[in-house]
Computed example of a mutant assay.
Amino acid sequence: MKKLGFLVIVASIVSSLLFGLTIQAATFKDIPNNFWAKSEIDYLFGKNIISGYPNGNFGPNDNVKRIDAAAMVVKALNLNTTNRPNPQFKDISRSTVGFDVIATVVDEGIFTGTDGSFYPNKTLTRAEMAAIINRAFKLEKKSTKVTFKDVNSKFWGYLDIQNLVGHKITEGFPNNTFQPSNPTTRAQFSVFLTRALKGKEGNTGTPDKDSFEVIGIY
């Protein structure tokens, strides 16, 4: 009887924790149940990869900064940030907030700088996002016949973008563009990162065609 009672208590605690997590993952005030990226946002939130703002919002349409993307990648891959070499960028120092994260993604070859600077607060473009996802997850090269009107074969991120298409992580916009220079939003990055993570875990799938056609965020 004592053993049974103990098991009941444990089961109740586990149930409460799981229920609490489910409720907590759905409490962003600006993410309704029918939001196109809700499942991906909840997935990353459940893994402690992303979080919301103190006001209870997620800010799905806010642009992602390079430092924010770096932090999410570090958490997603569970990278060790200790004792990483100083990347020697002109615009950061060891006292810079997020220095350990920047040093880690640079040491791993996931991020690079430009003209000796990292630009941590600069908005991450969609082309940069494609390159980062490819490097972070070491995606196998896959050929695809899909081409975008605004990404020619000489564009620096052409192969990275094409590879995301090959892995079914992106399909571009309905007008056959990828918009590589446009900023990456928090919702978009959540979707791309989730698909890459699930692909790594062996849980692949095709993008939601309905969401793709209506919203055109891929």
Rank of each mutant, 00 (worst) to 15 (best):
V151S: 01
R135W: 10
D160E: 10
K154S: 14
E171D: 15
Q162S: 12
T147I: 13
N176I: 06
W156P: 02
G157H: 09
T144F: 10
L139M: 10
L164D: 10
L159A: 12
Y158N: 04
P174E: 12
N175K: 11
I161T: 06
K142Y: 10
N134T: 04
G172E: 08
F148T: 04
F137Q: 00
P174C: 04
T170K: 03
W156G: 01
F173I: 11
I133L: 09
K149P: 07
K138N: 14
K142I: 15
D160P: 00
K154W: 02
F137C: 00
V165G: 06
I132M: 12
P174N: 09
I169K: 03
G172M: 07
N163G: 01
R135K: 15
F148I: 07
I169E: 07
K154C: 00
F148W: 04
E140A: 12
I132L: 13
L164H: 12
T177D: 11
K141F: 11
G172F: 09
N175R: 11
Q162I: 05
I161Q: 07
F155H: 15
T170A: 13
K145T: 13
T177Q: 13
T144G: 09
N175Y: 11
T147Y: 13
K168G: 00
G157S: 15
D160V: 00
N163E: 05
S143V: 11
T177V: 06
D150V: 05
V151P: 03
L159T: 14
K154P: 00
F173T: 14
G166R: 03
N134V: 07
I133T: 05
I133Y: 07
T170M: 11
I133P: 04
W156D: 01
L139F: 02
F148P: 02
N175C: 05
N163Q: 02
G166V: 09
Q162C: 05
K141I: 12
G172V: 09
W156F: 06
I132G: 07
K142F: 05
L164F: 10
T147N: 14
N152R: 08
F137W: 02
I133G: 01
T170F: 06
F173K: 15
K154Q: 12
T177R: 08
I161W: 07
I169W: 10
G172H: 07
T177M: 12
F137S: 01
K141R: 14
G166Y: 09
K142R: 15
Y158C: 00
G172S: 06
E171H: 12
V165F: 01
H167L: 08
I133S: 06
T144E: 12
L139C: 05
N152P: 06
V151F: 08
N175W: 12
I132H: 08
I169V: 10
T177N: 14
E140H: 05
A136R: 01
W156S: 01
A136N: 04
T144S: 11
K168D: 11
V165Q: 02
I161L: 10
K138A: 10
D160M: 01
W156R: 03
G157E: 06
V151N: 05
F155I: 12
A136D: 03
E171F: 15
D150S: 09
K141S: 13
D150N: 11
V151K: 07
T144I: 07
N175G: 03
L164Y: 06
S143Y: 13
I132N: 03
N176F: 08
S153F: 06
S153T: 13
E171N: 15
D160A: 06
K168Y: 12
